[in-house]
Design a protein around this nucleic acid. Structure first.
Lengths: 206, 206
DNA sequence: ACGTAGGGAGAACGATCGTTCTCCCGTGTT
DNA sequence: AACACGGGAGAACGATCGTTCTCCCTACGT
Protein backbone atom coordinates (compact mmCIF):
# COMPACT_ATOMS: atom_id res chain seq x y z
CA UNK A 1 0.00 0.00 0.00
CA UNK A 2 2.58 2.60 1.04
CA UNK A 3 5.33 1.27 -1.25
CA UNK A 4 3.40 2.37 -4.28
CA UNK A 5 3.01 5.97 -3.27
CA UNK A 6 5.74 7.38 -5.51
CA UNK A 7 4.40 5.35 -8.36
CA UNK A 8 0.92 6.67 -7.68
CA UNK A 9 2.13 10.24 -7.90
CA UNK A 10 3.72 9.62 -11.28
CA UNK A 11 0.56 7.86 -12.28
CA UNK A 12 -1.60 10.86 -11.48
CA UNK A 13 0.77 13.13 -13.33
CA UNK A 14 0.56 10.74 -16.26
CA UNK A 15 -3.23 10.69 -16.05
CA UNK A 16 -3.30 14.46 -16.24
CA UNK A 17 -0.97 14.64 -19.22
CA UNK A 18 -2.87 11.90 -21.02
CA UNK A 19 -6.20 13.59 -20.42
CA UNK A 20 -4.85 16.95 -21.59
CA UNK A 21 -3.47 15.42 -24.76
CA UNK A 22 -6.62 13.42 -25.41
CA UNK A 23 -8.83 16.45 -24.91
CA UNK A 24 -6.79 18.55 -27.29
CA UNK A 25 -6.67 15.85 -29.97
CA UNK A 26 -10.23 14.54 -29.69
CA UNK A 27 -11.64 18.02 -29.76
CA UNK A 28 -9.49 19.23 -32.64
CA UNK A 29 -9.76 16.23 -34.95
CA UNK A 30 -12.66 14.11 -33.74
CA UNK A 31 -12.65 10.95 -31.69
CA UNK A 32 -12.44 8.25 -34.31
CA UNK A 33 -9.83 10.16 -36.27
CA UNK A 34 -7.20 10.10 -33.52
CA UNK A 35 -5.56 6.88 -32.50
CA UNK A 36 -4.16 5.85 -29.18
CA UNK A 37 -0.65 6.13 -30.63
CA UNK A 38 -1.19 9.82 -31.30
CA UNK A 39 -2.48 10.31 -27.77
CA UNK A 40 0.59 8.52 -26.48
CA UNK A 41 2.91 10.71 -28.54
CA UNK A 42 1.18 13.92 -27.50
CA UNK A 43 1.12 12.92 -23.84
CA UNK A 44 4.71 11.74 -23.85
CA UNK A 45 4.00 8.48 -22.05
CA UNK A 46 4.32 4.86 -23.03
CA UNK A 47 1.41 2.82 -24.34
CA UNK A 48 1.70 0.61 -21.28
CA UNK A 49 1.25 3.58 -19.03
CA UNK A 50 -1.61 4.87 -21.13
CA UNK A 51 -3.51 1.63 -20.77
CA UNK A 52 -2.84 1.35 -17.07
CA UNK A 53 -4.23 4.87 -16.59
CA UNK A 54 -7.24 4.36 -18.89
CA UNK A 55 -8.31 0.79 -19.50
CA UNK A 56 -9.57 1.45 -23.03
CA UNK A 57 -10.17 4.16 -25.56
CA UNK A 58 -13.81 4.26 -24.54
CA UNK A 59 -12.79 4.97 -20.95
CA UNK A 60 -10.52 7.75 -22.18
CA UNK A 61 -13.33 9.23 -24.24
CA UNK A 62 -15.61 9.20 -21.24
CA UNK A 63 -12.98 10.94 -19.13
CA UNK A 64 -12.46 13.44 -21.91
CA UNK A 65 -16.13 14.41 -21.99
CA UNK A 66 -16.38 14.55 -18.22
CA UNK A 67 -13.33 16.79 -18.00
CA UNK A 68 -14.56 19.04 -20.74
CA UNK A 69 -17.96 19.40 -19.08
CA UNK A 70 -16.31 20.44 -15.84
CA UNK A 71 -13.93 22.90 -17.49
CA UNK A 72 -16.68 24.45 -19.60
CA UNK A 73 -19.02 24.92 -16.67
CA UNK A 74 -16.23 26.38 -14.56
CA UNK A 75 -15.33 28.82 -17.31
CA UNK A 76 -18.96 29.91 -17.61
CA UNK A 77 -19.18 30.34 -13.85
CA UNK A 78 -16.05 32.47 -13.90
CA UNK A 79 -17.49 34.65 -16.61
CA UNK A 80 -20.82 35.08 -14.84
CA UNK A 81 -19.31 35.56 -11.42
CA UNK A 82 -18.70 39.28 -11.73
CA UNK A 83 -22.07 40.21 -13.17
CA UNK A 84 -24.66 41.30 -10.65
CA UNK A 85 -27.76 42.43 -12.44
CA UNK A 86 -30.01 39.41 -13.25
CA UNK A 87 -30.81 40.57 -16.72
CA UNK A 88 -27.16 41.31 -17.41
CA UNK A 89 -26.27 37.87 -16.14
CA UNK A 90 -28.45 36.33 -18.80
CA UNK A 91 -26.83 38.44 -21.48
CA UNK A 92 -23.37 37.68 -20.08
CA UNK A 93 -23.84 34.10 -21.22
CA UNK A 94 -23.48 35.39 -24.76
CA UNK A 95 -20.43 37.38 -23.79
CA UNK A 96 -18.96 34.14 -22.60
CA UNK A 97 -19.77 32.60 -25.97
CA UNK A 98 -18.10 35.47 -27.81
CA UNK A 99 -14.96 34.95 -25.76
CA UNK A 100 -15.04 31.21 -26.36
CA UNK A 101 -15.59 31.58 -30.11
CA UNK A 102 -12.52 33.77 -30.26
CA UNK A 103 -10.15 31.16 -28.88
CA UNK A 104 -7.73 29.77 -31.41
CA UNK A 105 -8.70 26.13 -31.09
CA UNK A 106 -12.47 26.64 -31.01
CA UNK A 107 -14.19 23.93 -33.01
CA UNK A 108 -17.78 23.91 -31.81
CA UNK A 109 -19.34 21.99 -28.98
CA UNK A 110 -17.40 18.87 -28.09
CA UNK A 111 -20.62 17.13 -27.10
CA UNK A 112 -22.49 17.95 -30.26
CA UNK A 113 -19.50 16.79 -32.28
CA UNK A 114 -19.14 13.56 -30.33
CA UNK A 115 -22.88 12.97 -30.48
CA UNK A 116 -22.99 13.50 -34.22
CA UNK A 117 -19.96 11.32 -34.75
CA UNK A 118 -20.79 8.31 -32.56
CA UNK A 119 -24.49 8.87 -32.15
CA UNK A 120 -26.69 6.36 -30.39
CA UNK A 121 -24.02 3.73 -30.98
CA UNK A 122 -22.22 4.92 -27.85
CA UNK A 123 -24.50 5.18 -24.81
CA UNK A 124 -21.82 6.82 -22.62
CA UNK A 125 -21.43 9.61 -25.16
CA UNK A 126 -25.18 10.06 -25.34
CA UNK A 127 -25.38 10.24 -21.56
CA UNK A 128 -22.51 12.71 -21.27
CA UNK A 129 -23.94 14.94 -23.98
CA UNK A 130 -27.39 14.97 -22.45
CA UNK A 131 -25.98 15.66 -19.00
CA UNK A 132 -23.94 18.56 -20.33
CA UNK A 133 -26.86 20.13 -22.12
CA UNK A 134 -29.26 19.53 -19.27
CA UNK A 135 -26.86 21.27 -16.93
CA UNK A 136 -26.77 24.23 -19.26
CA UNK A 137 -30.53 24.23 -19.47
CA UNK A 138 -30.74 24.23 -15.69
CA UNK A 139 -28.38 27.15 -15.43
CA UNK A 140 -30.31 29.15 -17.99
CA UNK A 141 -33.51 28.31 -16.17
CA UNK A 142 -32.05 29.72 -12.95
CA UNK A 143 -30.96 32.87 -14.76
CA UNK A 144 -34.32 33.44 -16.41
CA UNK A 145 -36.11 32.95 -13.11
CA UNK A 146 -33.81 35.45 -11.42
CA UNK A 147 -34.39 37.86 -14.29
CA UNK A 148 -38.09 37.72 -13.54
CA UNK A 149 -39.34 36.08 -16.70
CA UNK A 150 -43.03 35.30 -16.72
CA UNK A 151 -42.32 31.77 -17.95
CA UNK A 152 -38.72 30.95 -16.95
CA UNK A 153 -38.81 27.47 -18.44
CA UNK A 154 -39.98 28.66 -21.82
CA UNK A 155 -37.48 31.51 -21.94
CA UNK A 156 -34.66 29.22 -20.80
CA UNK A 157 -35.41 26.80 -23.62
CA UNK A 158 -35.54 29.62 -26.12
CA UNK A 159 -32.20 30.94 -24.90
CA UNK A 160 -30.81 27.42 -25.03
CA UNK A 161 -31.72 27.25 -28.69
CA UNK A 162 -29.93 30.54 -29.29
CA UNK A 163 -26.85 29.30 -27.46
CA UNK A 164 -26.75 26.00 -29.34
CA UNK A 165 -27.38 27.75 -32.62
CA UNK A 166 -24.65 30.29 -31.98
CA UNK A 167 -22.16 27.55 -31.17
CA UNK A 168 -22.97 25.64 -34.35
CA UNK A 169 -22.94 28.77 -36.47
CA UNK A 170 -19.63 29.88 -34.99
CA UNK A 171 -18.06 26.49 -35.61
CA UNK A 172 -19.18 26.34 -39.21
CA UNK A 173 -18.81 30.03 -39.94
CA UNK A 174 -22.35 30.41 -41.26
CA UNK A 175 -23.44 33.56 -39.51
CA UNK A 176 -21.56 36.80 -38.98
CA UNK A 177 -20.69 37.36 -35.33
CA UNK A 178 -23.04 34.69 -33.98
CA UNK A 179 -22.51 35.58 -30.34
CA UNK A 180 -23.53 39.16 -30.87
CA UNK A 181 -26.54 38.23 -32.98
CA UNK A 182 -27.60 35.69 -30.39
CA UNK A 183 -27.23 38.30 -27.68
CA UNK A 184 -29.39 40.78 -29.54
CA UNK A 185 -32.01 38.09 -30.03
CA UNK A 186 -31.80 37.23 -26.35
CA UNK A 187 -32.43 40.87 -25.50
CA UNK A 188 -35.57 40.85 -27.59
CA UNK A 189 -36.75 37.62 -25.97
CA UNK A 190 -36.03 39.00 -22.51
CA UNK A 191 -38.08 42.07 -23.26
CA UNK A 192 -40.92 40.00 -24.65
CA UNK A 193 -40.86 37.57 -21.74
CA UNK A 194 -40.72 40.12 -18.94
CA UNK A 195 -43.32 39.51 -16.28
CA UNK A 196 -45.50 42.64 -16.24
CA UNK A 197 -45.32 42.94 -12.47
CA UNK A 198 -41.57 42.56 -12.25
CA UNK A 199 -39.90 45.99 -12.14
CA UNK A 200 -36.38 44.71 -12.88
CA UNK A 201 -37.13 43.95 -16.49
CA UNK A 202 -39.72 46.58 -17.23
CA UNK A 203 -37.39 49.26 -18.58
CA UNK A 204 -35.85 49.24 -22.04
CA UNK A 205 -32.09 49.59 -21.79
CA UNK A 206 -31.18 48.80 -25.37
CA UNK B 1 -21.54 4.48 -77.76
CA UNK B 2 -24.98 2.99 -78.45
CA UNK B 3 -24.02 -0.51 -77.40
CA UNK B 4 -23.62 0.59 -73.80
CA UNK B 5 -27.09 2.05 -73.44
CA UNK B 6 -28.63 -0.88 -71.59
CA UNK B 7 -25.63 -1.04 -69.32
CA UNK B 8 -25.91 2.69 -68.66
CA UNK B 9 -29.52 2.32 -67.54
CA UNK B 10 -28.56 -0.40 -65.09
CA UNK B 11 -25.71 1.80 -63.97
CA UNK B 12 -28.00 4.69 -63.18
CA UNK B 13 -30.36 2.43 -61.31
CA UNK B 14 -27.36 1.15 -59.35
CA UNK B 15 -26.21 4.68 -58.65
CA UNK B 16 -29.60 5.53 -57.25
CA UNK B 17 -29.74 2.49 -55.02
CA UNK B 18 -26.19 3.03 -53.81
CA UNK B 19 -26.85 6.66 -53.02
CA UNK B 20 -30.08 5.82 -51.18
CA UNK B 21 -28.34 3.18 -49.09
CA UNK B 22 -25.35 5.42 -48.39
CA UNK B 23 -27.57 8.30 -47.36
CA UNK B 24 -29.55 6.14 -44.97
CA UNK B 25 -26.45 4.54 -43.43
CA UNK B 26 -24.20 7.61 -43.27
CA UNK B 27 -26.96 9.69 -41.74
CA UNK B 28 -28.02 7.06 -39.22
CA UNK B 29 -24.60 5.89 -38.02
CA UNK B 30 -22.07 8.47 -39.12
CA UNK B 31 -19.67 8.41 -42.02
CA UNK B 32 -16.60 6.76 -40.55
CA UNK B 33 -18.72 4.16 -38.77
CA UNK B 34 -20.13 2.61 -41.94
CA UNK B 35 -17.92 0.70 -44.31
CA UNK B 36 -18.23 0.23 -48.01
CA UNK B 37 -19.23 -3.39 -47.44
CA UNK B 38 -22.28 -2.29 -45.51
CA UNK B 39 -23.21 0.14 -48.26
CA UNK B 40 -22.85 -2.67 -50.76
CA UNK B 41 -25.06 -4.98 -48.71
CA UNK B 42 -27.73 -2.32 -48.21
CA UNK B 43 -27.68 -1.30 -51.85
CA UNK B 44 -27.72 -4.89 -53.10
CA UNK B 45 -24.95 -4.38 -55.63
CA UNK B 46 -21.49 -5.81 -55.99
CA UNK B 47 -18.38 -4.02 -54.78
CA UNK B 48 -17.20 -3.78 -58.35
CA UNK B 49 -20.34 -1.97 -59.33
CA UNK B 50 -20.13 0.25 -56.31
CA UNK B 51 -16.63 1.39 -57.22
CA UNK B 52 -17.49 1.91 -60.85
CA UNK B 53 -20.39 4.13 -59.81
CA UNK B 54 -18.44 6.03 -57.15
CA UNK B 55 -14.69 6.02 -57.49
CA UNK B 56 -14.01 6.19 -53.76
CA UNK B 57 -15.70 6.54 -50.42
CA UNK B 58 -14.90 10.24 -50.46
CA UNK B 59 -16.75 10.60 -53.74
CA UNK B 60 -19.72 8.76 -52.26
CA UNK B 61 -19.70 11.02 -49.22
CA UNK B 62 -19.69 14.07 -51.44
CA UNK B 63 -22.62 12.72 -53.43
CA UNK B 64 -24.41 11.92 -50.19
CA UNK B 65 -24.13 15.49 -48.94
CA UNK B 66 -25.10 16.95 -52.29
CA UNK B 67 -28.16 14.74 -52.50
CA UNK B 68 -29.19 15.50 -48.96
CA UNK B 69 -28.85 19.22 -49.55
CA UNK B 70 -31.10 19.00 -52.58
CA UNK B 71 -33.70 16.84 -50.85
CA UNK B 72 -33.75 19.03 -47.75
CA UNK B 73 -34.18 22.23 -49.72
CA UNK B 74 -36.89 20.68 -51.86
CA UNK B 75 -38.77 19.51 -48.77
CA UNK B 76 -38.55 22.98 -47.27
CA UNK B 77 -39.80 24.52 -50.52
CA UNK B 78 -42.72 22.09 -50.56
CA UNK B 79 -43.63 23.02 -47.02
CA UNK B 80 -43.39 26.74 -47.68
CA UNK B 81 -45.13 26.59 -51.04
CA UNK B 82 -48.66 26.74 -49.71
CA UNK B 83 -48.13 29.58 -47.26
CA UNK B 84 -48.93 33.00 -48.60
CA UNK B 85 -48.61 35.54 -45.82
CA UNK B 86 -44.95 36.68 -45.51
CA UNK B 87 -44.94 36.54 -41.74
CA UNK B 88 -46.56 33.11 -41.78
CA UNK B 89 -43.99 31.95 -44.28
CA UNK B 90 -41.25 32.76 -41.81
CA UNK B 91 -43.03 30.85 -39.08
CA UNK B 92 -43.75 27.98 -41.42
CA UNK B 93 -40.03 27.24 -41.42
CA UNK B 94 -40.47 26.05 -37.86
CA UNK B 95 -43.49 24.03 -38.84
CA UNK B 96 -41.24 22.33 -41.32
CA UNK B 97 -38.76 21.64 -38.56
CA UNK B 98 -41.47 20.14 -36.34
CA UNK B 99 -42.47 17.82 -39.14
CA UNK B 100 -38.85 16.86 -39.79
CA UNK B 101 -38.12 16.25 -36.11
CA UNK B 102 -41.04 13.87 -36.00
CA UNK B 103 -39.70 11.56 -38.69
CA UNK B 104 -38.57 8.20 -37.41
CA UNK B 105 -35.00 8.38 -38.63
CA UNK B 106 -34.32 11.98 -37.62
CA UNK B 107 -30.80 12.30 -36.27
CA UNK B 108 -29.96 15.99 -36.47
CA UNK B 109 -28.40 17.92 -39.31
CA UNK B 110 -26.35 15.71 -41.60
CA UNK B 111 -23.99 18.57 -42.30
CA UNK B 112 -23.39 19.47 -38.68
CA UNK B 113 -22.77 15.81 -37.94
CA UNK B 114 -20.39 15.39 -40.85
CA UNK B 115 -18.64 18.64 -40.00
CA UNK B 116 -18.19 17.65 -36.39
CA UNK B 117 -17.00 14.22 -37.35
CA UNK B 118 -14.51 15.02 -40.11
CA UNK B 119 -13.97 18.67 -39.39
CA UNK B 120 -11.43 20.68 -41.30
CA UNK B 121 -9.68 17.45 -42.26
CA UNK B 122 -12.08 17.08 -45.17
CA UNK B 123 -12.35 20.21 -47.32
CA UNK B 124 -15.23 18.81 -49.43
CA UNK B 125 -17.29 18.27 -46.31
CA UNK B 126 -16.52 21.76 -45.10
CA UNK B 127 -17.53 23.20 -48.45
CA UNK B 128 -20.76 21.21 -48.61
CA UNK B 129 -21.72 22.14 -45.06
CA UNK B 130 -21.05 25.82 -45.63
CA UNK B 131 -22.95 25.79 -48.90
CA UNK B 132 -25.93 24.14 -47.24
CA UNK B 133 -26.04 26.60 -44.38
CA UNK B 134 -25.44 29.60 -46.61
CA UNK B 135 -28.35 28.54 -48.78
CA UNK B 136 -30.53 28.37 -45.69
CA UNK B 137 -29.30 31.77 -44.61
CA UNK B 138 -30.15 33.17 -48.01
CA UNK B 139 -33.65 31.73 -47.88
CA UNK B 140 -34.26 33.14 -44.43
CA UNK B 141 -32.96 36.47 -45.59
CA UNK B 142 -35.48 36.48 -48.43
CA UNK B 143 -38.28 35.60 -46.03
CA UNK B 144 -37.36 38.30 -43.51
CA UNK B 145 -37.15 40.89 -46.25
CA UNK B 146 -40.57 39.87 -47.55
CA UNK B 147 -41.93 40.02 -44.01
CA UNK B 148 -40.85 43.61 -43.84
CA UNK B 149 -38.17 43.40 -41.19
CA UNK B 150 -36.32 46.62 -40.51
CA UNK B 151 -33.00 44.78 -40.72
CA UNK B 152 -33.60 41.61 -42.75
CA UNK B 153 -29.99 40.44 -42.49
CA UNK B 154 -29.93 40.68 -38.72
CA UNK B 155 -33.28 38.97 -38.30
CA UNK B 156 -32.32 36.23 -40.77
CA UNK B 157 -29.18 35.48 -38.78
CA UNK B 158 -31.14 35.42 -35.55
CA UNK B 159 -33.67 33.03 -37.05
CA UNK B 160 -30.82 30.94 -38.41
CA UNK B 161 -29.50 30.55 -34.90
CA UNK B 162 -32.92 29.45 -33.71
CA UNK B 163 -33.18 26.94 -36.53
CA UNK B 164 -29.72 25.49 -35.89
CA UNK B 165 -30.33 25.40 -32.18
CA UNK B 166 -33.67 23.67 -32.60
CA UNK B 167 -32.11 21.03 -34.84
CA UNK B 168 -29.35 20.34 -32.34
CA UNK B 169 -31.73 20.30 -29.40
CA UNK B 170 -34.13 18.00 -31.21
CA UNK B 171 -31.35 15.60 -32.11
CA UNK B 172 -29.98 15.44 -28.59
CA UNK B 173 -33.33 15.69 -26.84
CA UNK B 174 -32.24 18.59 -24.63
CA UNK B 175 -35.25 20.85 -24.96
CA UNK B 176 -38.92 20.03 -24.87
CA UNK B 177 -40.60 20.53 -28.24
CA UNK B 178 -37.74 22.53 -29.75
CA UNK B 179 -39.58 23.42 -32.93
CA UNK B 180 -42.47 24.99 -31.05
CA UNK B 181 -40.15 26.87 -28.70
CA UNK B 182 -38.10 28.10 -31.61
CA UNK B 183 -41.28 29.22 -33.36
CA UNK B 184 -42.46 31.15 -30.33
CA UNK B 185 -39.05 32.81 -30.09
CA UNK B 186 -39.21 33.60 -33.80
CA UNK B 187 -42.59 35.27 -33.26
CA UNK B 188 -41.09 37.49 -30.60
CA UNK B 189 -38.15 38.36 -32.83
CA UNK B 190 -40.47 39.14 -35.73
CA UNK B 191 -42.49 41.45 -33.53
CA UNK B 192 -39.38 43.17 -32.25
CA UNK B 193 -37.86 43.51 -35.72
CA UNK B 194 -40.92 44.82 -37.50
CA UNK B 195 -40.23 47.91 -39.48
CA UNK B 196 -42.46 50.64 -38.01
CA UNK B 197 -43.66 51.79 -41.42
CA UNK B 198 -44.54 48.32 -42.65
CA UNK B 199 -48.21 47.60 -42.05
CA UNK B 200 -47.95 43.85 -42.68
CA UNK B 201 -46.12 43.19 -39.45
CA UNK B 202 -47.51 45.89 -37.25
CA UNK B 203 -50.42 43.94 -35.81
CA UNK B 204 -50.06 41.36 -33.07
CA UNK B 205 -51.68 38.12 -34.13
CA UNK B 206 -50.40 35.92 -31.35
C1' DA C 1 26.73 -6.15 -5.01
C1' DC C 2 23.00 -8.68 -6.57
C1' DG C 3 18.38 -9.96 -7.52
C1' DT C 4 13.94 -8.27 -8.58
C1' DA C 5 10.05 -5.46 -9.63
C1' DG C 6 8.45 -2.11 -12.66
C1' DG C 7 8.50 1.13 -16.41
C1' DG C 8 9.88 2.56 -21.49
C1' DA C 9 10.07 1.58 -26.35
C1' DG C 10 8.08 -0.53 -29.72
C1' DA C 11 7.13 -5.05 -32.05
C1' DA C 12 3.30 -8.06 -32.57
C1' DC C 13 -1.53 -9.58 -33.03
C1' DG C 14 -6.16 -9.74 -34.46
C1' DA C 15 -9.73 -7.08 -36.42
C1' DT C 16 -11.44 -3.88 -39.65
C1' DC C 17 -11.46 -0.89 -43.65
C1' DG C 18 -10.80 0.93 -48.34
C1' DT C 19 -9.66 -0.81 -52.57
C1' DT C 20 -8.36 -4.18 -56.13
C1' DC C 21 -8.10 -8.71 -58.21
C1' DT C 22 -9.53 -13.35 -59.41
C1' DC C 23 -12.64 -16.64 -60.76
C1' DC C 24 -16.83 -17.87 -62.70
C1' DC C 25 -21.13 -17.56 -65.02
C1' DG C 26 -24.62 -15.73 -68.12
C1' DT C 27 -25.55 -13.36 -72.44
C1' DG C 28 -25.41 -11.60 -76.97
C1' DT C 29 -23.13 -11.89 -81.59
C1' DT C 30 -21.63 -14.16 -85.90
C1' DA D 1 -22.33 -23.53 -81.66
C1' DA D 2 -18.22 -21.13 -80.27
C1' DC D 3 -16.59 -17.11 -78.27
C1' DA D 4 -15.68 -12.68 -76.25
C1' DC D 5 -17.39 -9.51 -72.82
C1' DG D 6 -19.38 -7.70 -68.69
C1' DG D 7 -21.02 -8.30 -64.27
C1' DG D 8 -21.51 -10.89 -59.51
C1' DA D 9 -19.50 -12.89 -55.43
C1' DG D 10 -16.07 -12.67 -52.60
C1' DA D 11 -11.03 -13.54 -51.69
C1' DA D 12 -6.95 -10.86 -51.25
C1' DC D 13 -3.96 -6.92 -50.10
C1' DG D 14 -2.05 -3.18 -47.70
C1' DA D 15 -2.90 0.11 -44.21
C1' DT D 16 -4.52 1.30 -39.78
C1' DC D 17 -6.30 0.75 -35.17
C1' DG D 18 -7.04 -0.94 -30.44
C1' DT D 19 -4.77 -3.77 -27.43
C1' DT D 20 -1.23 -6.88 -25.61
C1' DC D 21 3.38 -8.82 -25.25
C1' DT D 22 8.40 -8.98 -25.36
C1' DC D 23 12.70 -7.26 -24.35
C1' DC D 24 15.68 -4.31 -21.98
C1' DC D 25 17.06 -1.06 -18.65
C1' DT D 26 16.95 1.26 -14.33
C1' DA D 27 16.32 1.80 -9.47
C1' DC D 28 15.55 0.10 -5.04
C1' DG D 29 15.83 -3.34 -0.99
C1' DT D 30 18.88 -6.35 1.71
Amino acid sequence: MDGTRRVRMDGEEARRRILDAAERLFYARGIQAVGMDQVRDAAGVSLKRLYQCYASKDALVEAYLEHRDRRWNDALSDHLGSVGEPRERVLAVFGFLAEWFGTADFRGCAFVNAFGELGPASPPVVAAARAHKNALRGRLRTLTAEAGAADPDLLADQLLLLVEGAIVAAAMGTAADPAERARSAARALLDAAAAPDHPLTAHWPS
